[in-house]
Amino acid sequence: MFGIIGIVLIFAMVFGGYMAAGGKLGIILKALPFEMMMIGGAAIGAFVIGNDLPAIKQTAKDVGKVFKGPKWKPEDYRDLLCLLFEMIRVARQNPLELESHIEAPNDSAIFGRYPRIVADHEAVELICDTLRAASMNYDDPHQVEEVLEKRLEAHMHHSMHSSHALQTMADGLPALGIVAAVLGVIKTMGSIDQPPEILGKMIGGALVGTFLGVFLAYGLVGPFATKVKTVVEEDAHFYLLIREVLVANLHNHSPAICIEVGRQNTPGDRRPSFSDLEEALKAAKQEAA
């Protein structure tokens, strides 16, 4: 919603101010299709050269984050804490039963109660792999924590690729705008024998290239890259919470303490209250009974 509002504000303020100052859109609108073809086409072509097919698909998908915002909502953090509590409790009470849950999470009754989490492959794998490592009698919790840290860093690096690709495109757009403007000047110089009023329109059309490159870079593509980065960083807290809870479990804290560690490490705007989480945990226990 805010993404759409921001785009509307950008266009309204830029072009509204231009028209309020006495500018006419005729020259811009006439040159726009050709300039957009040169600048936008060159930018997309450079993007295709610099990225493989999976990265291109992922970037196209991640653009939606500008409008959708973070994937994980407050209720998802609460559900994650309930899921981890149940898994830790099973691991403490019946390690053999735990194996069936972590080896086939899609068939697990516990995981099945949290479909949004199950739909996220990385979250499920992180939980199952860490609990599997704990069942292998890792003596040093810090060793598992280090492995998790490296895994999360790798996941973050991969998730940030879309933001970096968009930012690279934004950095190149002003230069591509200059290329389009130079081509417009070359075209104008080929018609130097025309009257001043015609030359003026041709020069104005050429300058649209410079305007468009800068406008797209700093008004749209650059902010898109920043927003994607922000959303990825916010969603990363979900996976960090998994690490905090499961590492606390490796230190042999009680399940309740492990979950409280996770609750305290949840971002403030998504952190469930102690009472809300307590009620959710009670409901989960009753459902499991």
Rank of each mutant, 00 (worst) to 15 (best):
V124M: 02
E35K: 11
E75M: 13
A248L: 05
E122Q: 13
R132K: 11
L183C: 13
A236S: 15
D235M: 08
Y18V: 08
S273G: 14
I127F: 04
H251A: 13
L207M: 15
K30R: 11
G222K: 08
E153I: 12
W72I: 04
A43G: 05
A225H: 03
A165M: 07
V144P: 00
K282L: 15
L173K: 02
E278D: 15
I44Y: 00
M189S: 07
S108N: 01
L240F: 12
P223K: 05
D193W: 07
M136T: 09
L80H: 01
K24L: 12
A225E: 00
M36A: 13
V14N: 02
A217E: 03
M1P: 08
P141I: 00
H237E: 15
F215L: 08
Q58I: 11
T230Y: 09
A123Q: 01
A280H: 10
K61T: 14
A289K: 13
A284L: 04
D107M: 13
S162P: 03
L250H: 05
E97C: 07
L250E: 07
L250I: 05
G16P: 05
E145L: 04
M36W: 09
L53R: 09
E149K: 09
R132C: 00
L250Q: 10
T188Q: 08
P33Q: 09
G64M: 12
S135M: 11
L241Q: 09
P223Q: 06
G219Y: 02
D79K: 10
G190L: 07
E279C: 10
I4Y: 08
V147A: 14
V228M: 03
W72G: 01
Y114D: 01
V185S: 02
G213C: 09
Y239C: 04
C82L: 00
E146A: 15
L32D: 05
A170S: 14
F274D: 09
S100R: 10
G26L: 11
Y18N: 07
N265S: 13
S275K: 07
L240W: 10
E146C: 08
P196E: 04
F215N: 03
E149T: 14
L176Q: 03
F67A: 04
G64H: 07
I110M: 01
L148W: 01
L183E: 06
L29Q: 13
A133L: 11
A55R: 09
A175W: 02
I10W: 06
H251G: 09
N252P: 00
E122L: 09
E233F: 02
C258T: 03
S191A: 15
G213I: 07
